[in-house]
Design a binder for these strands. Structure first.
Lengths: 332, 332
DNA sequence: CCTAGCACTTCTTTTATATCAGTGCTAAAA
DNA sequence: TTTTAGCACTGATATAAAAGAAGTGCTAGG
């Protein structure tokens, strides 16, 4: 248990370090704490002993340790009112009543990336969580068809396919067979159901069944397994802790790695803060994320920035978006 | 007019520099040229005089100047047979008969980025080049509709919209009005035609015309004006000439700037090489690009890399893709 | 016209030196 | 017991000097 002064001090050090990105010296904060720098130093030594502060070298000022950030986030951070400017800008997006959820998400997270200079990520549904609701087909011209796949969670994807020597009638027949027989199947199992349940049947009913089967097989095989959208990657280059090319290289590669990003997905619908090592991306980065859930859709949104991140602000922003999405305030 | 030996020498210097990324010394190439390093040095001095070579400092080896690269590309480069491995990998993509053009493009340019460690770009159509062919509407549930916009060049886009208190019938009526009256209109003019030609009419025929009009207006207002796809941006970090954070920052920002990328678009259907300053991106970068044109689609594909780029190989790769797309070899 | 040889230049790396910011500790003051 | 002033000490940073490496230009002779 920390004393009042220790709490106040840790809070000061975290916020100063967030602001200036330089180790915080005893001199810098002794005024605020109303005591001499020597007193601050001995108190700092105590906090370092506990493991909440660190030094970059023996005679440097202090920076928060991972545990220190954790303590700050869990105990010291106060969720102040979102700043008016941030609020205003975001509201412009949510005031628009005509967008679909993915658009609200993408616009607002893009805006956040710009405002904060961090990086934001929207993770859509995984294909095994989406079930086939129905397929539609639209004829574009003699040989080209537009196949539209709609899932139960409202995810829609379209693919144009060329099918030679096959009439629209036959394609439509196949489509309605699929809709009747395998709607409700998780997307990533559709391919195999096509093979074992549909193929034998259309073999009897449809003339050019081989061609049609192949086309549909392909469409579902390629169904984008995950909808990942990253905005503001370049902002990483703005942070002083990443002025090192090797580090940047590593982080950029991780942000391109779908598998690593998928791990970001969270079960929890609270706003979660993963600091440093916990982030699984880089020891100097923090990931703040939350799950949103609407009647038709769910997914994860995340903000990635340096460990030295403006925690209060980001948590506030994510919270705002999550709430606006979920109760549709301003949308209806 | 250069002598044979000068040509041979310039070619050697360019290819050595491309390989090693270090200024080429007289010693390194005197064996190949079958003369002493002193002879090479005096010949180098001549080529420098002409402006084809440069030094990085007074006692350094030589590197090609921009003019030197230009001369190399225009006169010395020989389009050797594409290497077997590259060819094989690309053919796997084009052998697949089921894809649509954008998929062939994206897959093959992604592959090229991986193989070469450069960055590739696909520029789709601009909205003023696309004309509205037709709209389709699919009902998802009571209040949600899927609006599908199809252009004459085969570009397709879908948007989900929520429209309250309006029946599918009314939406369909509006859709068929739009299809009858303004198909053929360039996409970026549709919004205004909607306002002046459609709005007055549906005002009479359709009950909730205000809501429907707003929805369609929004859909076309947001119609993605340009389809830009960049792959392999991180490869820039691998090139030794870009081991400088400020430079990387600048380049990454430019690659995010839609306006600058749009300038990459070319009129010419040949393969064009833009070296250094000509690239408009960075003095140390080269852009190699070409336009492809099929019966239904056209656009520009480009590879971006260091000035010290493997010109022969990239030109070969782009040529292969362009040809495969255009005559549909392997696709039918 | 070509080439061996050598002085010369610049870059790179290493070593040394000075300055600065900020700590830890001690002993005295509160 | 807690706080504070004072000071020696440490590591980071910047600048300078010195040594070594790479490669050129030039000259004189083949």
């Amino acid at each position: 248990m920390l004393t009042d002064r220790q709490n106040k001090m840790l809070k000061l050090i975290v916020s100063e370090y967030i602001k200036l990105a330089k180790p915080v010296s005893s001199n810098l904060i002794c005024e605020e704490l109303d005591c001499s720098s020597a007193t601050v130093r001995s108190e700092m030594a105590v906090l370092e002993e506990i493991g909440l502060l660190e030094k970059t070298h023996i005679s440097s000022g202090r920076i928060p340790s991972e545990k220190g950030y954790r303590y700050y986030v869990d105990n010291l951070m106060e969720l102040k009112e979102m700043n008016a400017e941030d609020m205003l800008k975001l509201q412009i997006i949510f005031k628009n009543q005509q967008l679909e959820i993915s658009e609200y998400l993408n616009y607002s997270l893009k805006l956040i990336a710009e405002m904060t200079n961090y990086t934001s990520i929207v993770l859509g549904n995984t294909s095994h969580e989406n079930k086939l609701k129905k397929i539609e087909v639209i004829s574009l011209n003699e040989n080209e068809f537009l196949l539209i796949v709609i899932t139960d969670k409202g995810h829609v994807e379209h693919k144009k396919r060329e099918i030679l020597n096959v009439s629209l009638e036959e394609v439509k027949k196949t489509v309605s067979l699929i809709n009747d027989l395998i709607s409700g199947t998780p997307i990533d199992e559709v391919s195999s159901k096509l093979e074992f349940e549909i193929k034998p049947i259309i073999g009897r009913y449809v003339k050019e069944h081989e061609i049609i089967y192949n086309t549909f097989y392909q469409v579902f095989k390629d169904f984008s397994s995950k909808n990942i959208n990253i905005v503001g990657k370049n902002n990483i280059l703005k942070q002083p802790e990443f002025n090192n090319l090797d580090k940047v290289k590593d982080i950029f590669n991780k942000l391109d790695d779908v598998d690593i990003l998928n791990k970001i997905e969270t079960d929890d619908s609270d706003i979660n803060v993963y600091i440093g090592k916990e982030s699984n991306i880089d020891d100097d980065m923090t990931v703040i994320k939350t799950k949103y859930r609407t009647s038709t859709d769910e997914g994860t949104i995340a903000i990635i920035g340096p460990k030295r991140m403006d925690y209060d602000r980001v948590v506030g922003l994510l919270d705002f978006i999550k709430n606006n999405l979920e109760d549709g305030t301003g949308r209806r």
